[in-house]
Write a protein that binds this DNA or RNA. Sequence first.
DNA 1: GGACCTATATATAATCC
DNA 2: TGGATTATATATAGGTC
Lengths: 168, 168
Amino acid sequence: MTRKKVKLAFIANDSSRKATYKKRKKGLMKKVNELSTLCGINACAIIYSPYDSNPEVWPSNSGVQRIISEFRTLPEMDQNKKMTKDSQSLGQFEETKEGQPRDGDDRSYLIDQYLKDVNRRIEILGNSRMELGESSNNVAAEAIQTVPIIHGSARVSRVDVHITFVIL
Amino acid sequence: MTRKKVKLAFIANDSSRKATYKKRKKGLMKKVNELSTLCGINACAIIYSPYDSNPEVWPSNSGVQRIISEFRTLPEMDQNKKMTKDSQSLGQFEETKEGQPRDGDDRSYLIDQYLKDVNRRIEILGNSRMELGESSNNVAAEAIQTVPIIHGSARVSRVDVHITFVIL
DNA sequence: GGACCTATATATAATCC
DNA sequence: TGGATTATATATAGGTC
């Protein structure tokens, strides 16, 4: 009964932590679903965690596959017709920032940068895991350490939850 | 006063939709923050949307950069020391599934598959955008259409919110 | 539009099986 | 553990400026 105000801190008790994780993951998924529906945003989410044997996806496994497949079939050219203006007029999206390259989208650079980072990170994550056929948890665990341990051999202790949301 | 039970459907009114989007995005961020803290999960979130001129990140721009940078500096080998057992003993994570390759993690295959999909998808997204210096919104817009339009030239109307969560 | 302000709708911690 | 249950803590739609 949520009688406790939930101190925002790491839950020491393992079972409690797991229980909370599952509940909140579910809640997060629901929120994504609602945001998607209410704002007309197409989205898919993939949540991977050591708690679940299978990655959890939204809206559904096939839904995720479909979105990805459809995207792949798009001729690259068709994917880039500029339509900032159209978007604005049709849905008032797009808040063009001043002083941006006229022909490009104002956020292109930032997005590209982030995508590159994510992309590279995913690649490394995938490669390393495949090479050793090892759990990716360690990787995440290490990445977690704010400073040290990174180069050392002292493996991290807990952690290991990977959640990847890709909402388009 | 949330007097209304909020019909879970696309919000036609533009300003209302935007207002809702901003509120819910904030709520989602908070939820991610809480999940991260409560469950000891290191995470970063990147949310890009046409409503905001800059991508929104969590825990902070520098925090995201740091996590990514640190991860990159990891020697690939160091990233994969198996530690399923350690994790279990230390934090009771890792729920080993029976009948899996003894040396690999049970979820490796599934994860690898998803990562590949996401990875490829991100690459395509990035490449196409960079080639034309165009907004990636169109891409998302198209991907949204459940069935048609995909191959046609009739561009989508609204949409354009990209949210990419990468929680590790 | 953005920044509050509530009244309600929801999320969820704690408990029991 | 994995569900239900339910009392509270939160999230937030709708108003008001």
